Amino acid sequence: MATGGRRGAAAAPLLVAVAALLLGAAGHLYPGEVCPGMDIRNNLTRLHELENCSVIEGHLQILLMFKTRPEDFRDLSFPKLIMITDYLLLFRVYGLESLKDLFPNLTVIRGSRLFFNYALVIFEMVHLKELGLYNLMNITRGSVRIEKNNELCYLATIDWSRILDSVEDNYIVLNKDDNEECGDICPGTAKGKTNCPATVINGQFVERCWTHSHCQKVCPTICKSHGCTAEGLCCHSECLGNCSQPDDPTKCVACRNFYLDGRCVETCPPPYYHFQDWRCVNFSFCQDLHHKCKNSRRQGCHQYVIHNNKCIPECPSGYTMNSSNLLCTPCLGPCPKVCHLLEGEKTIDSVTSAQELRGCTVINGSLIINIRGGNNLAAELEANLGLIEEISGYLKIRRSYALVSLSFFRKLRLIRGETLEIGNYSFYALDNQNLRQLWDWSKHNLTITQGKLFFHYNPKLCLSEIHKMEEVSGTKGRQERNDIALKTNGDQASCENELLKFSYIRTSFDKI
């Protein structure tokens, strides 16, 4: 039985969820670079991206490699990797027998973001014989899940209580170790020597080791999670996991709180800001991140802002960003909400898709409305799209047979046209069989910064309504002859009103 693990408890099935942008060198404390989270699957090609990484700022997932063999891993080693800020997950990587050479110096898994409450997941690794993470000293947050690894031993010899604050939620089941077939031998045991430290858990006094050649490092209890030197002297209180010299914040392997210019500090002093819960960055760093993602459509890219001495992905609820200094300031009234469309555009074809934009005031991208039916549609669209004030790209209304009016965009005031449909149009209306009105132009103002209007096959939309939009939106004169079809717009509506004058002759039985 794995020490510190839980057996036999019912657990939810383990679901495996399925960018080499360097964020800056980590400095003297770390020998390499800070790398983003990685999802490495199918083959070993991307694994080489770990070569210079000291910190993975995010998670590391290595999974679904069915053609790899043990010899493929023999020359692979990433000794610079010290810390993973989120979680480490391995799933069905064939041929991998140990992690001792792959990650010989991995010391800390912070667990800032977890995989279903777990910071370390080893699942269905069919050839893994031992973990071998002999320098792993601290899992700051989260638990361990090690399950269905039929060859995995050296679990009962690990004292997880020396690595985690609590072992109650560890789930370590259905491994070879369960069948008591392992016969784990710690260093020196074969020669009758006791080389590794022994600890007591559940009444068992057991030597602690990761492999037959690597003991588990056990520091004096007084050192807590700070770690200790090879001689057993406690590291500085700002260290986490390990250090090369005692009581020196510049000799830590990793930091308990924050890293700044080669030393570990309790908090980031001005003019620095907390970033990702582990390091200090200056304003320029946060500003660069903001600008890199301002026009990016890459998933996970955030326009970072500053709030409460932190550089964070977005302002919290009730705050909006001051564009001059990136500071989050309290909103006066309802907060603006910028919604970034991942692929640059979004099609609204149902109430469900409209709900995804609920509360958005600025759309960074283009909207395509293609709704053919739905219950209580006008009210639903207004509830979900009615706060949109600005669209950076274009607005396209296409084959939306259920629409009679666009009044559900009740606050839309600006279409920038930074991206144009077919390279020309910022407003595009095609084949809307029941569209009769755009907006009530006596109450609604709309500016279209650039781009043209396109109207074709809107049989109940009168040309007068379209011409009014040209005047109000500032697009009059931009359109070419064929942009607004004269014969297919309003051709099934009563669009022309003329005053009919009647004269009559009164007659009676005795007068003409």
Rank of each mutant, 00 (worst) to 15 (best):
F275W: 07
C239A: 00
I172G: 13
G188Q: 10
M83L: 12
F116L: 10
H48D: 04
E238C: 01
G232D: 15
L96A: 02
D101T: 12
A119K: 01
Q61I: 04
L155Q: 12
V167R: 06
P36D: 01
V34P: 06
P270A: 03
C315V: 00
C243N: 00
L60C: 04
D159L: 03
G241A: 09
L326Y: 07
E168W: 11
A230E: 14
V265A: 06
F73V: 05
T199L: 11
K100Y: 10
L29E: 14
C182V: 03
V281M: 02
E207H: 15
N175S: 10
C280K: 01
P36F: 13
D86W: 02
Q299W: 03
N105Y: 05
M321Q: 14
Q287L: 06
E151L: 11
D178S: 08
D184V: 15
C186L: 07
K310H: 03
D75I: 10
C182I: 05
K193R: 15
D178H: 14
H290A: 06
F115V: 13
I84L: 02
D277L: 05
H212D: 15
C255P: 00
S77Y: 14
H307G: 02
F123I: 15
M65F: 10
N295A: 04
M83D: 02
D277T: 05
P334W: 05
A156M: 08
E33Q: 10
L60D: 01
D247M: 04
P70W: 14
K193V: 03
N242E: 13
S317N: 04
Y273P: 02
T107I: 15
N309V: 03
I56N: 00
S54R: 14
G32D: 13
C315E: 00
G227E: 03
C286R: 00
G132R: 01
Y304T: 13
H236S: 10
K176A: 06
Q204W: 02
I172L: 15
D261I: 01
P313K: 10
P271D: 01
C311Y: 00
G58V: 00
C223Q: 04
S317A: 05
S213A: 04
D169F: 10
Y134K: 00
T68F: 08
L88A: 01
C268T: 00
K310A: 10
N170D: 09
V265G: 01
P197H: 08
P330E: 04
R46Y: 05
L29H: 14
N52T: 11
P334M: 14
F78L: 05
Q61R: 13
E231K: 05
Y134W: 14
S284V: 07
A190G: 05
I82D: 04
S161R: 10
K217R: 12
L326N: 13
N135V: 01
P270M: 08
V281S: 01
T229E: 06
T320I: 04
D159S: 11
L120Y: 01
S77D: 02
G183Q: 03
P197V: 06
F116I: 11
C280F: 01
S112V: 09
L233Q: 12
C228S: 03
K176S: 08
Y134T: 02
C239P: 00
R263C: 00
C182A: 10
G318S: 07
R145I: 06
T229N: 14
H59I: 03
N295E: 08
T320K: 03
I139T: 02
R298F: 05
G232F: 03
C280W: 00
Y154A: 10
V218Y: 06
V265Y: 00
P249K: 00
C215E: 14
P79N: 07
P336N: 08
N308A: 08
L96C: 10
D277G: 10
P249Y: 01
C301D: 03
V200K: 03
V200T: 10
V173W: 01
M321L: 02
E168A: 11
L155D: 05
S166V: 11
L332Q: 07
A156D: 00
P249R: 01
V144E: 01
I84C: 01
D39E: 15
R256W: 02
M137Y: 10
Y94I: 08
E238F: 04
K148R: 15
K176P: 09
C182T: 09
E151F: 05
N149H: 02
G111I: 01
F91C: 01
F258I: 02
D86C: 01
E314A: 08
L89H: 04
N43K: 09
I163W: 02
R110I: 09
C243V: 00
N295R: 15
C196V: 13
R92L: 14
Q276P: 02
Y154K: 08
L174I: 11
D288N: 14
C243I: 01
D75K: 05
Q61K: 14
L64Q: 11
H226G: 11
W278R: 01
E49K: 02
P336V: 14
Y30D: 07
C286T: 00
V108S: 10
R113P: 03
H226K: 12
S284H: 05
S237A: 12
A230H: 10
S98T: 11
V93R: 00
E33F: 01
K100C: 13
S54D: 02
N257M: 03
K251Y: 14
D178L: 13
Q303I: 11
K191H: 03
E71V: 15
K217G: 06
I82K: 06
G333N: 06
L260I: 13
S54Q: 11
G227N: 05
I163N: 01
P104V: 02
L233H: 12
K148D: 09
G188W: 09
E57G: 03
E130R: 07
R110F: 04
P271M: 03
R113G: 11
R298Y: 10
